[in-house]
Design a protein around this nucleic acid. Structure first.
Length: 956
DNA sequence: GAGTTTGAAACT
DNA sequence: CAGTTTCAAACTC
């Protein structure tokens, strides 16, 4: 976590601040899945909160559909113990509202940004009529957390805004919080800026409105209701009592007088990319001055309290050097009307008050509406009160102080309208530039529908905004399609989603679109090798590449099979520098363990979706969970949302442990080593060939003409497709992790609806794609059924989705966890799972007449372990029921026998060439046999002694 | 491609 | 837990 000092510094920092779209705020909270995730984060290792079977601990190590523990380590609970006014650590921010009521005791609401605090959002986020996230229902999980609204920073951090519920409503209000309003914002780092994508409105009612083009929505809750275009609303943020600092006023009152004010939300992004959401009872008006064209509807007091970001303003950019934070609104491109409406209602209503702001030792007269005060210290409160006192005249104008710990001097944030009309207002700002000002620019993100329009940043630092915006991918709005992603562990994660992310992403998407296309092209045409070579840590990157390529691929498949049921999204990940344009466009950079992934729907019209992948920290590698902004219905179970980790290795998949093999190799006798090397060389060659094939396959653009981004023509292949474990005979692929995987054959289920373990797709945690199955429910269209089936399977067998074949330890030979039960195949046909996996049967197996012993020639390198007896020890220990389990077999393997026979044959051949007498030949052959047996026995003895020594050492 | 075989999964 | 049935893949022709 960043130190608090960093935060402060960030404020002063002149460096361009990354933009954060409003989506960032919304995503984390969206739905139950998010709750799960966050809960998990808190509980880290123990996710039994849900109490469902999915929490089976046994599955942790395995890639199972079950929820994994430790899956999310997003958040560290940094919640500050004292809810009180005091500055919370470095990141704590106090917001002091200049309430008309108490100038002396301004309401101080602390905003804490709880870094890594898992929160259960109590707020509902709606896009239009669609509820993206409903946090309002206090989950059974924890009511205490219900107040928290997760905000995701661009750098991938999740911060939670803890809001206090109005006193009447919640008992859970944070202690020490004066009013019912939002108390805390936890900002890990300095405040930088907040970007509200298009049409985001912060209503005084605590609603965040986002204008969505084409829809007209009125926010009922807001007292200052302006019928704006479609709104996307964040509910549940209760306004602090406006006038009375200590009295929380319920949000519900539409006619809120100044005293009872709907909560306002301000989002400020720190220099670190952290977002601080400020919910204030008394409103800070962003855009206050907007001259709203038509709507004059000032609602009087309510307006004053409400903080709105007019839809027109898309971005909030915190500029640097100046002591002020300016919220600048740009005129809406398309939805001007909408924008204006919303803005007008709030801002105009308030009587513009002016206040003295002290900046850089100078006092500046500023319109109080637009100013947010940033005070460095906890003590700042008092100062705030003073300033507010100046304002007192106009209760409506809310002056909010944000207290930044450690930072000297009060800073004010001023909201400037970027509209031309507004420009005048902004110009009027008297704040001396000497002050360090941070500008908050609200940049309206272009409509989602609008394609590649460059984001309009009215930001004083356009370059910054542009730069930040660029990486963002365009999200599709209103799309309920789900994104499925496979984790690094190989599990498939249906991304639970908020149903739609609003325009928030639209900005980035638009900008990115062209690049994205190019990226896709590049990927398709480009060199996949990079992905393959990328280190594990960059798996996701690889994944992206593959996905991109896959998308192109998908087009191919689209022609053929049952496309309808196939997942349509291509997920791209942020790639490091290596990825070049491709990644840059779609991926939104995340500094922390969270990465943003943009999923583009293969269908032309389908919007792209962006979601964050949270990497578990510490022991867990790879992506454990994803938060998706797109829409899985909330109905989807936790399992789905969390994403269950399917097999990483399915029953057939085998991983080669180089280290272990090397270790074994050392233990081999020369003959074995030779053979081992040969096998290794063959295996490597196989891998290379597979990779080559994969590359060629994936790279090959099937529909070059089509713009890759918008339409990855066919249904894009989902990650899981790429990551699917190799199936013998299946076309080899390279998974996102760079490992070799092979797409197994497509299932052909007819009666199971692909929702039983009979179906390999389902059993592998994959969605059916390109399968010939009938009545398939193993797709996103039947998520509920699928989820139910998963649960059912897990009920029957918690390990149902575990890999059947695993290595007890990293170096150990892979074993079938359950063992086969073959009766008639002799375990020498692919009916046998052991045989199919190319591993010998063990004592665990219940097979009859087993002939699947070690060292089958076709068994790959791991089978060599058998020579060393590593494998059979297990059977030996377990009362060998099979004749081949005795220790002799450990050493007298087929390979050894074969080698021996070859030696004998060579003798015969030699003798024949030399026309030697048969008797001599027979004798020589027998001698040869004797020598071979001697060697075997000697070797076995040495090994036996060695093993004993090792054991004794280990024991000691 | 149809039919058979096989063994895991599902069911009782 | 064992026996039976169901199922889909593997296999054969």
């Amino acid at each position: 976590m960043d130190t608090s000092g960093g935060n402060l510094d960030s404020l002063d920092d002149t460096e361009p601040l990354p933009e954060l779209s409003f989506e960032d705020f919304l995503e984390p909270t969206s739905d139950k899945s998010s709750q799960h995730m966050e809960i998990d984060a808190l509980d880290s290792d123990d996710d039994d909160i849900d109490g469902d079977e999915l929490a089976d601990p046994a599955n942790d190590s395995l890639n199972t559909p079950q929820f994994k523990k430790n899956v999310v380590h997003i958040l560290e609970d940094k919640r500050l113990p004292s809810p009180g006014v005091t500055v919370l650590k470095s990141h704590a921010i106090k917001v002091v509202t200049a309430g008309a009521t108490s100038p002396v005791k301004p309401q101080i609401k602390d905003l804490k940004i709880l870094n890594n605090l898992k929160a259960i959002p109590s707020n509902a986020v709606k896009i239009g009529s669609t509820t993206i996230a409903n946090t309002s229902t206090t989950g059974s999980i924890t009511k205490t957390l219900s107040n928290l609204t997760p905000i995701k920073t661009q750098d991938g951090r999740v911060i939670f805004v803890q809001k206090s519920v109005p006193g009447t409503q919640t008992k859970a209000t944070v202690a020490g919080s004066p009013g019912g309003g939002i108390r805390r914002l936890v900002a890990p780092a300095g405040i930088q800026k907040a970007v509200l994508s298009k049409g985001m409105t912060l209503a005084n009612t605590g609603l965040v409105k986002a204008a969505v083009p084409g829809k007209v929505v009125t926010t009922g809750t807001t007292g200052s209701s302006s019928s704006s275009s479609t709104t996307f609303t964040i509910k549940g943020i209760t306004p602090l009592a406006g006038g009375s600092a200590k009295v929380a006023s319920p949000v519900t009152s539409p006619t809120c007088s100044t005293s009872a004010q709907p909560s306002k939300i301000q989002v400020v992004r720190t220099a670190d990319g952290k977002i601080i959401k400020i919910n204030q009872t008394s409103s800070v008006l962003l855009n206050a001055k907007q001259t709203v064209v038509g709507t004059s509807a000032p609602r009087g007091t309510s307006a004053a309290n409400a903080v709105k970001l007019s839809p027109s303003t898309s971005n909030v950019v915190v500029g640097k050097s100046v002591g002020q934070v300016v919220l600048k609104t740009t005129a809406p491109v398309k939805q001007a009307a909408t924008t204006t409406v919303s803005v007008a209602s709030t801002t105009t209503s308030a009587t513009p008050g002016k206040m003295l702001v002290q900046s850089g030792g100078k006092q500046i007269l500023v319109s109080s509406k637009n100013i947010i005060k940033l005070s460095p210290k906890a003590g700042a409160t008092s100062t705030i009160s003073n300033t507010t006192g100046g304002q007192a005249a106009s209760p409506t104008s809310g002056l909010h102080a944000i207290q930044l710990p450690g930072k000297g001097g009060v800073q004010y944030v001023r909201v400037l309208t970027n509209n031309k009309s507004a420009a005048g207002s902004s110009a009027t700002v008297t704040v001396p530039k000497t002050m360090q000002t941070q500008k908050i620019t609200v940049v309206r993100s272009p409509a989602a529908t609008s394609a590649a329009t460059t984001p309009v940043t009215s930001t004083p630092i356009p370059a910054v905004a542009a730069a930040t915006a660029a990486p963002k991918a365009s999200p599709s709005l209103g799309n309920t399609n789900k994104i499925v992603m496979r984790t690094t562990g190989g599990s498939i994660v249906p991304l639970p989603s908020m149903q739609t992310l609003v325009s928030k992403r639209a900005l980035g998407a638009n900008t990115n679109t062209p690049k994205l296309a190019s990226a896709t092209n590049s990927s398709s045409s480009g060199s996949p090798s990079g992905s393959q070579e990328s280190p594990r840590k960059n798996r996701l990157i690889d994944l992206n590449m593959h996905l991109a390529s896959a998308s192109s691929d998908a087009s191919d498949s689209s022609d053929a099979g049952p496309e309808a049921k196939k997942p349509r999204y291509v997920i791209t990940m942020q790639q490091g520098t290596q990825q070049g344009s491709q990644s840059a466009q779609k991926v939104i950079g995340r500094q922390t363990n969270m990465q943003r992934v943009v999923a583009s729907n293969t269908s032309p019209n389908a919007p792209k979706k962006i979601y964050n992948i949270v990497k578990s920290t510490g022991t867990n590698n790879g992506v454990k969970y994803m938060i998706c902004n797109s829409g899985v219905p909330q109905s989807s179970t936790s399992a789905m949302r969390r994403g269950y980790t399917g097999y990483v290795d399915n029953k057939l998949r085998r991983t080669l442990s180089i280290s272990s093999q090397q270790h074994r190799f050392k233990q081999m006798n020369p003959q074995q080593q030779t053979k081992h090397m040969q096998l290794q060389a063959q295996a490597k060659q196989r891998i290379r060939q597979q990779q080559m094939q994969t590359v060629s396959i994936k790279v090959e653009p099937k529909l070059p003409t089509q713009p890759p981004i918008q339409k990855p023509t066919g249904p894009a292949k989902p990650l899981f497709d790429i990551l699917k474990p190799p199936v013998p005979g299946a076309a080899p692929t390279v998974d996102a992790l760079g490992g070799m995987t092979t797409r197994r054959k497509h299932c052909n289920c007819s009666k199971s609806q692909c929702l039983k373990l009979y179906c390999d797709c389902f059993a592998n945690g994959e969605f059916c794609q390109d399968c010939t199955c009938k009545d398939c429910f193993n797709n996103l269209d039947y998520e509920v059924e699928r989820e139910r089936a998963i649960r059912s399977c897990l009920d029957r067998n918690p390990s149902a989705f575990k890999p059947k074949i695993t290595a007890p330890n990293s170096g150990d030979m892979r074993l079938h966890n359950k063992g086969c039960n073959c009766k008639r195949s002799g375990c020498l046909k692919n009916y046998c799972e052991c045989y199919e996996a190319k591993i010998p049967c063990t004592s665990i197996c219940k097979c009859v007449g087993c002939r699947n012993m070690e060292d089958r020639p076709d068994v790959d390198m791991d089978s060599l372990d058998g020579l060393m007896g590593t494998k059979n020890t297990k059977k030996d220990k377990a009362n060998d029921k099979h004749s081949h389990d005795n220790r002799a077999n450990v050493y007298l393997t087929d390979d050894v026998i074969e080698a021996t026979i070859m030696c004998m044959i060579s003798r015969i051949v030699m003798h024949e060439k030399q026309n030697m007498p048969v008797e001599d030949t027979e004798r020589e052959v027998m001698e040869e046999l004797g020598e071979s047996l001697n060697q075997i026995i000697t070797f076995a003895k040495e090994k036996h002694d060695t093993s004993h020594l090792d054991e004794s050492k280990a024991a000691s």
